[in-house]
Simulated assay, not measured.
Amino acid sequence: MSYLSHDERRSELLHAAVRVLERDGLAAVTSRAVATEAGASPGLVHHRFASTSELAAEAWLAYVERERTAYELETPTPGRAALDAFFAPFADGDLAGLARWADAWRHAQSDERFAGAFAESYRALERSLAARLPGAGDRTAAASRLLLIAFGIAGAQRIDPGLLSEPGALMAGAIDRELATS
């Protein structure tokens, strides 16, 4: 392993944590898993991050920021197409992506450090989505309603993928209702 500065090594470990999160889920973000992913020792992970909770929270924030930034670059104009792109995992049946959000929601309820990171990521998503909602109404409230519906659908899909017969249609209906009231 080559020499990297403290910040470079921390960044490398954080990127490894994001890869573990995407591939195996939030619960898999452990110092051992991240160390293996980065080709480092678990002690090095502990040296750069105060706790596994801090590591998971920072990995979550990095993951959401990357996804949110990509969305904003791809959908600069408000409208239905931007909303459809935001909620594409429902239409595409992306159960892994939905499970990530459901797991993060659940994890935030039991881990105070992660709860702060989740709240921060939620507010960032809310701002991104509100900026792409057309109309003059309370776009932040509309964005929040859509996000909460999405989290509910994601949670139901996580519990049982067959629980909701058409999660994409449910989300599309929620988008239709918000657009009709704006």
Rank of each mutant, 00 (worst) to 15 (best):
W60P: 05
V45H: 07
F86I: 05
R32M: 12
T52I: 02
Y71N: 00
F49N: 07
A91H: 11
G25I: 04
A40T: 06
P42E: 11
T52Y: 04
A28Y: 04
A40I: 03
E54S: 11
P42S: 10
A38D: 00
L73D: 13
A28C: 06
D92Y: 02
L83N: 00
V18D: 08
A70C: 00
A50L: 10
L73K: 07
R19Y: 11
V34R: 01
S51Q: 04
T75A: 09
T75G: 02
A50R: 15
R68G: 08
P78F: 00
G39M: 04
R48S: 10
R66F: 06
L44R: 14
E74R: 12
V64C: 09
V64P: 07
A70Q: 12
V34P: 01
L83I: 10
T69Y: 08
R80K: 06
E65A: 14
S31G: 13
T77V: 15
T30I: 02
V20W: 01
T36F: 12
V20E: 09
A57V: 08
S41R: 13
A62V: 09
Y63R: 14
A17E: 06
R32K: 13
A28M: 05
H47C: 02
L55P: 08
A59W: 02
R80S: 01
V18Q: 08
E54T: 13
P78N: 05
